[in-house]
Amino acid sequence: MGNLADRIEEYLKRILEQTSEGYIILQRSELAGEFDCVPSQINYVLDTRFTVERGYLVESRRGGGGYLRIVRLGLGLEGQYQQIMRQLIGDQLSRGRCNGLVDRLLDEELVTVREAALIRGILAGEALRGEFRDWDELRARLMKAILTTLSRDDLL
């Protein structure tokens, strides 16, 4: 069933789907024990798969009474997600962060696989290589325009 990171991700997403609160609170050490791994492997999954771009906020407190709180951000028209995304995108958006956002739009079925591929292709920057100095800035502007367009169409 895939690698350890995939299994941990699936487990956390399944628990999040089952909760009505929209968040879960876990002990990092207990989760590591359940998967027979070190806590740093849990951190890796959280750092790479539960990012703001993908629609999650992760609060973490280390130590004896430490915990993990994973919050699934809403996608409603006035949802936290849009506010956070607009702040997060800022003036620059890397290709990796952009792909994370597109993955979230796809996961939420707000865009089709084909639309996601188009967005990724356009924002990858291959066509403009060498002609534009600050691709991350242009990518941020284009992604904001895409999100605004989706919002106008009542998709977000």
Rank of each mutant, 00 (worst) to 15 (best):
R7N: 07
E10V: 13
S20H: 15
S20R: 14
E21V: 15
Y23H: 15
I25P: 12
L26D: 04
Q27M: 14
Q27T: 13
S29I: 11
A32D: 08
G33P: 12
G33K: 15
E34L: 15
D36M: 12
D36A: 14
C37S: 14
P39D: 08
Q41R: 15
Q41T: 12
D47S: 06
T48K: 14
T51V: 07
T51I: 06
Y56I: 09
E59T: 03
R61G: 05
G63H: 05
G63D: 07
G64D: 10
G65Q: 03
G65W: 01
Y67H: 07
L68V: 00
R69M: 05
G74I: 04
L75M: 14
G76M: 04
L77F: 13
G79Q: 12
Q80N: 15
Y81D: 03
Q82G: 10
Q83V: 14
I84M: 09
M85P: 05
M85D: 08
R86H: 13
Q92M: 04
L93R: 00
G96N: 08
C98A: 06
N99R: 11
V102L: 02
E108W: 10
E108T: 14
L110K: 08
V111D: 01
G121H: 02
G125E: 03
G125L: 01
A127C: 04
E131A: 09
R133G: 10
D134T: 01
D136H: 00
D136V: 00
D136I: 00
E137S: 09
A140W: 01
L142I: 10
M143W: 01
K144F: 02
I146P: 04
S151Y: 13
R152T: 10
L156I: 15
